[in-house]
């Protein structure tokens, strides 16, 4: 049968920052083809295909909380594959090859991680499970 794709709405204007992204206006509708754990979602309109940040998309059919994983306060061990410097006060700055605990894997690609007493958002694409090869 036909593949039914979910429709999402842009919550704000988004201007592409690399070649294969889409630029869209607030209120535009897109179909989501693939949800990458990086938080970049592959989307299509009638005339274009490309990547959009999940943080700018909301489901047309009301909140889709069933897809959000629950936090795991015990934490799951990951390590950073690249350094990242916090740009917002709720993010965490870490160097490369630092072991941290992931306590909430969010679909938008910003995971809540814990390092000692510190907690904050970190890009999931800069994390890998400890012990796994890059």
């Amino acid at each position: 049968g036909p593949i039914i794709l979910q429709t999402y709405r842009l919550i704000a204007e988004y201007k592409k920052s690399s070649k294969h992204e889409l630029s869209m206006k607030a209120g535009d509708l897109v179909e989501v083809v693939e949800k990458s754990t990086s938080g970049w979602w592959f989307c299509q309109t009638e005339s274009h295909r490309g990547w959009l940040p999940a943080t700018y998309l909301e489901p047309l059919e009301g909140p889709d909380e069933s897809e959000d994983q629950e936090p795991n306060y015990e934490g799951e061990l990951y390590q950073t594959t690249k350094p990242y410097k916090a740009e917002q006060e709720d993010e965490i700055s870490l160097e490369q090859d630092v072991t941290i605990e992931v306590i909430h894997k969010l679909l938008d690609g910003w995971w809540v991680v814990r390092k000692g007493e510190q907690t904050g958002y970190y890009p999931s694409m800069l994390l890998q499970k400890t012990g796994e090869k890059r």
């Binding site: 919550i11 704000a12 990086s38 490309g50 700018y56 993010e91 890009p123």
Partner: peptide
């Protein structure tokens, strides 16, 4: 390829849509 996601982290939500501190 167009099907490779961008290599930079996606932006945080627009300011008015940001979640509260974890």
């Amino acid at each position: 390829s167009i099907r490779e996601p961008p290599t930079n982290p996606p932006p945080r939500p627009p300011a008015e849509h940001r979640r509260k501190r974890p």
